[in-house]
Design a protein around this nucleic acid. Structure first.
Lengths: 190, 190
DNA sequence: CATGAATTTCAGTAATTTCTGAAATTAAAG
DNA sequence: CTTTAATTTCAGAAATTACTGAAATTCATG
């Protein structure tokens, strides 16, 4: 591996963390490298930087593209593909959420729905269905929230985050204000 | 595998999904089994239900305990350990969030902090640090939100979920009401 | 349509992870 | 202290996943 020490530490860390997420080491390393580099890299740049085989780079880039995590760029008079990550970290977060939902949540939801259509053949199955129903309801609530929130602009999303648990207090406050007929109150927005 | 068909489908699905999350097939299957069973199971029950070796069950249960995902129960006049999952799916969600944060987010945050302490030795490193800083800020915002929200009672959490993106509208409404005419600088609304 | 640079595919191999059975350990009861 | 049931540990086997190099493919250009 042939990288400035800081970049190398970052890349190695992402590689290790990769396995804790569902992705493999190389994919994690390539992503980290693209993320932190100041300009787009082509496959051979990655080969040089990480000392891995050309074919491994090819397959890993394909994987990253399937996740929509990289952007393909072209440089004039150069046939090669160059890759970067989006500049906006919020956009990256959105993509990550979307893809993980697609791969990790949606299939489970569809299995739960299917199994809940069946008629239980025993007391044991009846109980199991009740448990699956609880899980289904939870996941549906979460995905409903997600579908709602994912359309927000970055600034609004940041506002929502900063608000955090205070939302519930805000709700109370609004109830009070509205029910009192717009009496003037101190703003408590942060 | 010796289970009612509905339970078997659920268990097999969790096993497969297991690998998309960081956990392995057996651990996923055992968790699913414990989750959907009407009473606590001991290691040998699991061996029978899933047709896997006793030692595998032992190691997998240990893994689940490390994740705080199972509850250990005892039955009078029986030396064996019996396992279940918590009844409350919201509690399960909280545990899952906490453990995943601990394993998948915190280590990255600490690496980012460490690397951002260093003095960049080149323009390339300077740029990398800027990118790491963006990532750090995002992660810190998210974990701050999480730390705030995780203490909420289930009912409040459900309220917050149901509110979703409407929070921003609520905020606007409150601003309008309390500031009596002073308009907030608008983000570009989609 | 031949050339050659860039890239992808894929079969075989390497590395890693998971799983098992045998042996070791633990701990309750005689 | 011994017996015995329950559990854990761990070395090796099995299974899975990741990686490589060689061959095949793609595609812009002469």
């Amino acid at each position: 591996m042939n990288l400035p020490p800081l970049l190398q530490s970052f890349v190695l860390h992402f590689g290790e963390m990769g396995s804790r997420w569902g992705i493999n080491r190389t994919v994690g390393q390539i992503y980290a490298l693209l993320y932190a580099s100041s300009k787009p890299l082509c496959a051979d740049d990655i080969v040089d930087a990480l000392s891995i085989s050309r074919s491994n780079v090819s397959m890993s880039l394909r994987e990253l593209q399937a996740w929509n995590l990289v952007i393909l760029k072209h440089i004039p008079d150069d046939r090669r593909d160059y890759f970067t990550t989006p500049d906006d970290v919020w956009q990256i977060l959105r993509t990550l959420a979307e893809e993980r939902k697609k791969r990790e949540v949606d299939p489970t939801l569809s299995v739960l729905r299917e199994l809940l259509m069946q008629t239980p053949g025993s007391e044991e199955e009846r109980h199991a269905q009740a448990r699956l129903a609880e899980m289904q309801i939870l996941i549906e609530q979460l995905t409903k929230w997600y579908d709602d929130v994912k359309h927000l602009e970055t600034e609004q999303l940041a506002t929502l985050l900063n608000l955090g648990a205070k939302v519930t207090r805000l709700l109370d406050a609004k109830d009070r204000i509205v029910s009192l007929g717009r009496k003037r109150t101190e703003p408590k927005t942060s």
